[in-house]
Design a protein around this nucleic acid. Structure first.
Lengths: 164, 164
DNA sequence: TATTGTTATACTCTATAACTATA
DNA sequence: TATAGTTATAGAGTATAACAATA
């Protein structure tokens, strides 16, 4: 049984004998497919990043800080889709590892800027290699064109269903 | 901000200006795509089923019981990917609504069989219509062939990454 | 010995409410 | 008045441990 927790309810029973990819009929429902693909992939990345002592979410936070430095906590929270109250503890953990620093925002003293440290940047880059590997490994069962189409289709769906 | 909780950490920052589907470069990472597609879809189904007083997970449990009646609690738990201890409360809720009945298993007195009642079957079928609608609506931004390819690709990935 | 259902308990991830400082 | 960071708290969804009944 999968050990990743707290992902939303299944939409469909798991067939006792999962249909082979070549079969046309009886595709499981979309909710089952999306949830389980996300679940398996989260497990993979979580396990692969574990030796670095970082979770996928923490790595994602570092990644936000890399592509545009000195974001506020609130900005990072919005990018990750979590509340600013939840962000506090996340940044606390990153700061404990000395991967980021909090500094008062020069122009707005309500804000903290969050900045990558050199060790933070190192972890980010090690993590990026691992994440890239995970993606390649996970998508290996599809050909490269199908993998690309999958990603494009997912992006289309996310954009089209944004408001929900 | 999405209200569905407890789905695993993001893999990637959300671009401030999400790329248009026509752009080739800078597709978000797989983890972000899978998580957010699953998240948006779970929100949709959850909202659409709410008037029936049933969650996607509860509906999925009823659905398991429909395609093969008189399963044990443990069997349903395994199909849903949750622990048998978690199943107890789920079945409790379904039983409170009089959608299922627990009966001692005739051949193995350690087990309960869980059986759909007529009202349970009615809710299951109303829910199925809603779920089918959700799927159609959610996939509307893709053409029918692309939607089918997406589902097939997801099934392939789940099968290929089963062990994780 | 192993399995099923059950209860008690605890963990993880997240949000809401309320506070302080600042805008 | 509104916003950023913070703290305390609560809730949802889940699992682990331990027990009784049964295999």
């Amino acid at each position: 049984m999968l050990t990743i927790k707290k992902v939303y309810g299944l939409q469909v029973p798991i067939p006792a004998h999962p249909p082979r990819p070549s079969e046309e009929a009886a595709l499981p429902r979309l909710g089952y497919l999306l949830k389980h693909a996300a679940l398996h992939y989260a497990e993979l990345t979580s396990a692969e990043l574990a030796p670095l002592g970082i979770t996928p979410q923490e790595w994602a936070a570092l990644n936000c800080l890399d592509d545009q430095p000195d974001r506020s906590q609130k900005e990072v929270a919005d990018l990750l889709g979590i509340d600013r109250t939840t962000m506090v503890a996340l940044i606390d953990r990153l700061q404990t590892q000395a991967w980021v620093e909090r500094r008062p925002h020069p122009a707005d003293r309500r804000k903290n800027t969050v900045t990558l440290t050199p060790p933070g940047r190192a972890i980010l880059h090690s993590g990026a290699t691992i994440i890239d590997n995970c993606e390649h490994q996970f998508l290996a069962a599809l050909g490269a064109p199908a993998a690309h189409q999958l990603k494009q289709a997912l992006r289309t769906l996310i954009t089209a269903n944004q408001s929900r």
